[in-house]
Design a protein around this nucleic acid. Sequence first.
DNA 1: ATGACAATTGGGAATTGA
Length: 268
Amino acid sequence: MKIATYNINGVKARLPRLKEWLEETRPSVACLQEIKSQDKDFPAHEFEALGYSLIWHGQKSFNGVAVLVDTKAGYSLNEVKRGLGIDGPKEGEGEQSRYLEADVTKDGQTARIVCIYLPNGNPQPGPKFDYKLAWMEKLRARMAEIWAEEVPAAILGDYNVIPQDDDVYSVKAMASDALMQPESRAAYSRLLADGWTDAVRTHNPNGGVWTYWDYQAGAWQRDHGFRIDHILLSPELADRLNAVGVDREHRGREKASDHAPTWAILRD
DNA sequence: ATGACAATTGGGAATTGA
């Protein structure tokens, strides 16, 4: 089973790139973030035509997540939960679309798949940063519930956290950013301390792997990137981890997202 | 300190992102 996470930065603007990525790399499960589409406008048929089943949780203008499974390869999915029950940082805006959880099944084997788009938190300090930290605690509580269910589970997505100094091209350049504040890192570390495994880190213990390059200041050309898209695995799935990777080449294409797809392969 | 880029909404300029 190949599971992947990809912050696509707009499903409508990215549709050709996204479809070719699915066809070229054929993930069994794909978690998408920043679909930037309302539910009614989400082009589900485009993905169904490629042999994927999917669920999505959209929102006007920004945010939004989706989970796709390869029906051609025999996978099916059932939604378990959408939303963590936490309101956005603006008064009265309600909950943002950042969380989608499903059971994915093939040949009688089921894994819990959670797609997250964790709040960015900039500028910090401020209400958006407070929201980020509160969201991370909500996530941790939900992950503890999943842990207690003792199901094989993977929590994939854009965590908007640079876990360590060797996960960024320049510590100095990003020092004041919400992505690498001590509070953000501590909250992420607590997830690992709870027993979850950072799949990409496990296979790259010295860091140096990027999943995001800014559109600005020639960041891609200079390889000024960092790692914020993560795949966290329960112990059973961590034991089955075969390989991880980042589809860097897709970041360099025409009209690409500023993130690159990040994936892990698990033995059946 | 600021802006550099890009997507969305709405049909211009503001918001958001990281």
